[in-house]
């Protein structure tokens, strides 16, 4: 099993519903967020191109955060989800330094916190909170190892990109362009 997400930048309107849904679902402390929306504008007026991206932990295949963690608190669980075990985290910050996407932060209680792909929901067959609430249905969550899944079929049909491919992390969030 290899969970991944495809996000359609053509459908995304940048409403930030995914951000709020995540904060509510996961009790993210005030002032912090596990996902966020980036607006990118390219070109010179009047020839402008706009892109909205809902970003979060890329649950990479080659994980610098897990590699540099000195205690094994950052681990890869079933489905390739990268997760932090609170009780093992010493709050050294190595994984935050190691992440090219700045997807991790210190929870006010001291341990490192990040997107979990809502593993508690995924386990029961639900979609992650951000995917579930998206009003334009621009996000597809699924198993890359399942040839019949929506995500595999979408990635077959559409052109996509990943963020900072040159960092060598093999990210598992695909942006449809």
């Amino acid at each position: 099993m290899r969970y991944a997400m495809a996000i359609d930048t053509k459908k995304c309107v940048g409403c930030s519903d995914c951000v709020v849904a995540c904060q509510t679902e996961n009790n993210v402390p005030i002032g912090f967020c596990r996902d966020w929306v980036v607006e990118r504008v390219d070109g010179t007026y009047p020839d402008l191109e706009l892109e909205y991206r809902s970003e979060r932990c890329n649950h990479c295949e080659n994980t610098p955060c897990v590699r540099t963690c000195p205690t094994g608190a950052s681990t890869i669980i079933e489905g390739g989800i990268v997760k932090v075990v609170k009780g093992k985290c010493i709050g050294c910050g190595a994984c935050i330094q190691a992440c090219p996407y700045d997807a991790r932060y210190f929870h006010p209680k001291g341990y490192v916190d990040k997107c979990t792909f809502c593993d508690h929901r995924v386990k029961t067959g639900l979609n992650p909170a951000c995917v579930a609430v998206c009003p334009t249905n621009c996000m597809y969550f699924g198993d890359l190892d399942d040839p019949n899944s929506t995500i595999v079929n979408t990635l077959k049909k559409r052109k996509y990109k990943v963020l900072a491919a040159e960092a060598g992390t093999k990210p598992q969030i695909f942006y449809l362009i």
């Binding site: 963690c69 985290c89 709050g91």
Partner: peptide, 26 residues
């Protein structure tokens, strides 16, 4: 002092992680 989850510092010494330079250092 740099650690943010200080009470768990002993976790450094319950494991050896060859990939992590910080573990080597500890």
């Amino acid at each position: 002092l740099d650690l943010k989850h200080q009470l768990y510092f002993w976790r450094l010494y319950t494991t050896i992680r060859f990939d992590s330079p910080m573990s080597w250092g500890a």
